[in-house]
Design a protein around this nucleic acid. Structure first.
Length: 174
DNA sequence: CCCTGATTCGC
DNA sequence: GCGAATCAGG
């Protein structure tokens, strides 16, 4: 009996994931024979793939596809797969130096970025001009404005619940 | 070899 | 929708 993803478990998953827990850690805590693969799979289905603070920078690679050993029965031209990564992810500075809080966006550097400042990247990371938004982080590690962009879950179907259960459940855990 | 997340695809 | 298998990397 694979405990399906109940509201409870999904809520816990979101919470732990956004807290920065690794997939395997979350899988252990959820118990119920859930594997890290299951967690990751669910996370992706929920559209939470892009996290602000991954445990390790385990991302920067691209796999063209998966050449399984078994022959494949072909799959037609196949739908266009997304080739680009999700939203721009900030490089976690992990450096909380007590610095004056800039008011204007894009003025926080890796040196001045505080723990509760919006970590939305501004500009080219390889450029000397690179900076972070720096405004007060409210939703996760982003300010309200950028959180909306960063945490775009899915296109919800309007019509029924006006208040989207996702947004509601997220608020309860953040 | 441990770990990380990402992706594909059979179910 | 789910998650094992697989991949790619630290």
């Amino acid at each position: 009996m694979t405990a399906g993803w109940t509201e409870d478990r999904v809520g816990a998953l979101k919470k732990l994931w956004l807290e920065g827990q690794s997939a395997s850690q979350i899988a252990k805590q959820l118990g119920g024979g859930v594997t890290r693969n299951a967690v990751i799979g669910k996370v992706h289905r929920l559209g939470l793939s892009g996290r602000a603070a991954p445990s390790q920078p385990a991302r920067a690679t691209f796999r063209p596809s998966r050449p399984r050993p078994a022959a494949q029965p072909t799959q037609a031209p196949s739908a266009p797969r997304r080739i680009e990564a999700a939203q721009p992810r900030p490089v976690v500075p992990a450096a909380p130096p007590p610095a004056p809080v800039p008011e204007l966006p894009g003025t926080a550097t890796v040196m001045t970025l505080g723990a509760h400042m919006c970590k939305w990247p501004i500009g080219d990371p390889s450029s000397a001009e690179f900076s972070f938004c720096g405004r007060r982080a409210s939703e996760g590690v982003y300010c309200v404005e950028h959180a909306r962009v960063a945490y775009q879950p899915q296109v919800r179907k309007a019509g029924k619940d006006g208040a989207s259960d996702l947004a509601r459940s997220l608020r309860r855990y953040i």
